Amino acid sequence: LEQKEHGYSIEEQERKLKSFCEINDWSISDVFIDAGFSGAKRERPELQRMMKDIKRFDLVLVYKLDRLTRNVRDLLDLLEVFEQNNVAFRSATEVYDTSTAMGRLFVTLVGAMAEWERETIRERVMMGKRAAIKQGMILTPPPFYYDRVENTYVPNDYKKVVLWAYDEVLKGVSSKGIARKLNDSDIPPPNGKRWEDRTITRALRSPITRGHYTWGDVFIENSHEPIITEEM
C-alpha cells in the first residue's frame, strides 16, 4: 500500500539503500527483498534466509523499520538475535541506535506504533465490511447451488441436487453414499472433478442453504431464498 501511494517502489528503496551504503563507505554483502510479502509476517523467505546467515554480517540496514517487521514481539526477537551475533541495526530513513538502552526502547516504541497502526487499519476494514453487509451488500461468492444476481443469492439448477441429497439423508444414506451416487450419475460436480462427501455435508449444514447470510461473526436472517427451510 505504501509503495503504491507514495511511490516507494522496491527498486527505489534498493537504490536509496545502496546509496546510503556508499555514503557511509559500507560494503554490501547481500540484498534481501521479500517482494509481495507483508512486513506483518515473519515467515518470509528472504527474512528467513537473512537470519540463517546472520553471522556473516556486521550490520542490517533497512529502508524503514516496518520493512523488517510490524510486530513488536518479532521485533524484540530479531533485535535480540542481532545483539547476540554482534550485528548492528540501522534504518536509512529513521534514526536508531540499538547499542544503547534508550535506543532499543525507541525502536521498540516505533515498532509498537507500526503494529498498532496495522491493527487499527485491519479493524477499520472489518468494521466497514460488517457495515456494508448489514446494509445488504454481499461480499463473498455464493456456494455452487446459488448464483449471485443483483446483490443477492438466487438458487440455480444445483438446487435439485441439494434437495435430492436432503431426501437421501432422511432415508439414512450417508454423505459418502450420496457422493458415490452422484459420481455414478451424469450430474457434473461443481468443481469439475468429483463429488466429495464434504461438499454434500457443507451444503446441507450451511445457514446459507436455509436462506441466511453469514460472514465472520455477522449473521443476517432471511437474506435470500432458502433451499432447505427451517421447518424442513
Rank of each mutant, 00 (worst) to 15 (best):
99 S>K: 12
139 L>R: 15
103 G>Q: 03
94 E>C: 02
39 G>Y: 06
71 N>Q: 10
90 R>H: 09
99 S>T: 07
101 A>T: 04
135 Q>M: 14
106 F>W: 02
80 E>Y: 04
97 D>V: 00
91 S>T: 06
126 M>R: 15
115 E>V: 08
135 Q>G: 14
120 T>V: 12
107 V>C: 00
120 T>A: 08
85 N>Y: 04
59 L>P: 13
123 E>S: 08
135 Q>S: 13
44 R>Q: 06
38 S>H: 13
47 L>H: 04
133 I>S: 05
52 K>N: 14
87 V>I: 11
47 L>G: 02
107 V>N: 01
110 V>C: 06
72 V>G: 01
91 S>R: 07
119 E>H: 08
80 E>R: 10
68 L>W: 02
50 M>D: 09
119 E>W: 08
127 M>H: 14
133 I>R: 12
85 N>C: 09
109 L>F: 14
86 N>W: 07
142 P>I: 00
129 K>C: 07
111 G>A: 07
111 G>E: 02
135 Q>I: 10
127 M>T: 12
40 A>D: 06
74 D>F: 05
70 R>G: 05
62 V>Q: 01
69 T>K: 01
142 P>G: 01
125 V>W: 02
78 L>Y: 10
50 M>R: 08
85 N>H: 13
91 S>H: 10
48 Q>G: 07
86 N>S: 11
138 I>P: 01
133 I>K: 10
59 L>S: 09
118 R>L: 08
134 K>A: 05
56 R>A: 14
49 R>W: 13
56 R>Q: 11
78 L>D: 01
141 P>S: 07
42 R>D: 06
106 F>A: 06
134 K>M: 11
78 L>H: 03
81 V>C: 11
86 N>I: 09
107 V>F: 01
98 T>F: 06
38 S>F: 14
113 M>E: 10
40 A>Q: 07
45 P>N: 07
77 D>G: 01
141 P>C: 06
70 R>K: 08
53 D>E: 15
122 R>I: 15
61 L>A: 04
88 A>Y: 09
80 E>H: 08
135 Q>E: 11
122 R>D: 15
60 V>M: 05
72 V>K: 00
121 I>C: 13
99 S>I: 03
51 M>Y: 10
83 E>N: 15
120 T>C: 13
110 V>S: 02
104 R>Q: 01
129 K>G: 07
141 P>W: 05
93 T>S: 14
101 A>F: 02
